[in-house]
Amino acid sequence: MITSYFIRRALGDLKENGLTHLLSIGTIATAFFLFCSFLLLSVNFDSFLETWEKKVQIILYLKDGLDEKRIVQLKKKLEHDEGIIEVRFISKKDAMDFFRRDLAGYGGVLEGLKEDIFPASLEIKLSETFRTPERIRNLAAQLNTIKEVEEVQYGGVWLERLSLILYILSWAKWVLGGILVLIIISVTANTVRLTLYNKREEIAIMRLVGATETFVKFPFYLEGGLQGLLGAGSSLLLLFFLFYLFSFKVSPYLNLYFGQLHLSFLSFTIIMSILGVGVMSGLLGGLLSLRKAERV
């Protein structure tokens, strides 16, 4: 009965000071929306990078004029190197065939091309532990010192750029998270303080007739918690809606350019954590404002 009374009172307070609470919830939701957007970007960049890392390989373009025996020796040597799981030889002819196949629609343009202009190469697949930007960069530098190698390519610039973006995002989300918590605490503390002021006579009467401090204060904690929950919840709903629209429009293009890459929304655990942060920050806001409430 007491619990239902507390909930009724907290909801009643929210209703009584509707506009004030609506503004508070709106502010909290905006702050949460910013934070969750960063989190969502970070999660998707993370998975994008993971997919990219799985596909990453190093290509060694070989100097012209190497005899086949030397290439086979080099291939065998590389296959025994740490971090390399497969080495595939692409001859000049293979390279031209791949090129023709990829650009099959431009048949006329390709006429007259000779295989001589394509370099022979070795495609190197890396073991999982070697698919980090730093290790790939080191290995590529090491392979570049081989005298038979003309050039090394590994898409490393992209990988490093993505890693940097991910690094910035992961820091930004924590900085934003910290600011967010401060915003929620401050907003709920002020709103609860306002409600407290509006209800000072009621509180004085409750204390006078013998209500416990817990009974007097608990609905205000609940109110703070509810504000946090509603703010976090509404921001997640809005973000999910926008994410759905965005992924619906963008997913086909992503698949076209990046293969089996798909966008994902925040996981259940993250959603629950966000709602939890909302509730806890709201409670803390209520707690702070109530510390200042004087006894009658």
């Binding site: 409750m206 007739v209 013998g210 007097v216």
Partner: peptide, 27 residues
């Protein structure tokens, strides 16, 4: 029980709610 000169009633609540508030507060 305490009665004041200026009544200290909650004017935004009904007569019933002014009294029931005490009982709710006392569980």
């Amino acid at each position: 029980g305490f009665v004041f000169q200026d009544f200290k009633l909650l004017n935004h609540k009904t007569v019933y709610d002014n009294i029931s508030l005490v009982l709710e507060a006392l569980g």
